[in-house]
């Protein structure tokens, strides 16, 4: 127990927590985007609703959901602790400091991108997770998606959040492997390619949904009933 505490209180220990939780959150993103592609099935959401029904009742998924929540909290808390400590380590700011000449933008703004993603998650869970899981009346998740994304401003907020997510993962994904000591000359090119899936393809996949429903979706009979244009 004592050594476990020493591990988490060490600088590298906290970062290992960040990388492991971060990578787990990445696997969730991959599953989430893949499942959400069912929105494009053109069946008025029959398959999508069946999929969410399965996800919210399957015992395995529900268990993983708890791990996911713990990971998110762990990632956020250790991120804030690391960030606060880092601010305290600098004695005084430089009058001239050209960090931008040596470092990529994504690596300098993880706290900003992370905070925005956290804010987005609060809104996102409030819109979709809370009404479907805890709502008193049964709602079709598909209809919720159609309704929410038919508001261009709401869709725009999603797209901005996805740009932040992309920047966050542009740095975070490869950073996790570096922290776990798994990055070296042999694998760094492979990792760079693997990272493209997370910082480019997955955010693009997610962004296609608000873009489609806000601008290209022709309201089907189910949406018309709800008064969506």
């Amino acid at each position: 127990m004592k050594s476990l505490f020493a591990f988490f209180s060490s600088s590298i220990g906290k970062k290992i927590v960040m990388s492991l939780t971060g990578l787990f959150l990445c696997t969730f993103l991959a599953e989430h985007v893949a499942g959400n592609f069912l929105l494009f099935m053109n069946d008025n959401g029959a398959m999508y609703d069946a999929y969410t029904e399965f996800m919210s009742h399957n015992i395995v998924i529900r268990t993983i959901e708890i791990v996911l929540a713990v990971s998110l909290v762990g990632h956020s808390i250790s991120g804030v602790i690391v960030w606060l400590k880092n601010r305290r380590s600098r004695s005084e700011n430089y009058k001239v400091y050209k960090l931008q000449e040596n470092t990529p933008l994504a690596s300098r703004i993880t706290m900003i991108t992370g905070s925005f993603i956290f804010l987005f998650l609060v809104v996102h869970l409030r819109t979709f997770f809370v009404p479907t899981r805890f709502g008193t009346e049964a709602v079709s998740p598909y209809t919720l998606v159609v309704q929410s994304f038919s508001n261009e401003w709401y869709s725009a907020f999603y797209i901005v959040a996805l740009i932040f997510l992309s920047y966050h993962l542009r740095h975070g994904f490869q950073s996790a492997f570096q922290t776990l000591g798994l990055k070296n000359k042999k694998y760094s090119r492979l990792l760079d390619w693997l990272a493209v899936i997370f910082w480019l393809l997955i955010p693009l996949g997610f962004a296609s949904m608000p873009i489609y429903f806000a601008f290209f979706y022709k309201a089907g009979p189910a949406a018309l009933v709800l008064g969506v244009q």
Partner: peptide
């Protein structure tokens, strides 16, 4: 060495890699 590094008050690496560049 890591324990001493932390005790001295150095910050955590955030993989910006400014160190390697300089």
């Amino acid at each position: 060495m890591v324990e001493q590094m932390d005790a001295e008050g150095f910050g955590n690496c955030s993989n910006t890699f400014a160190c390697e560049a300089e």
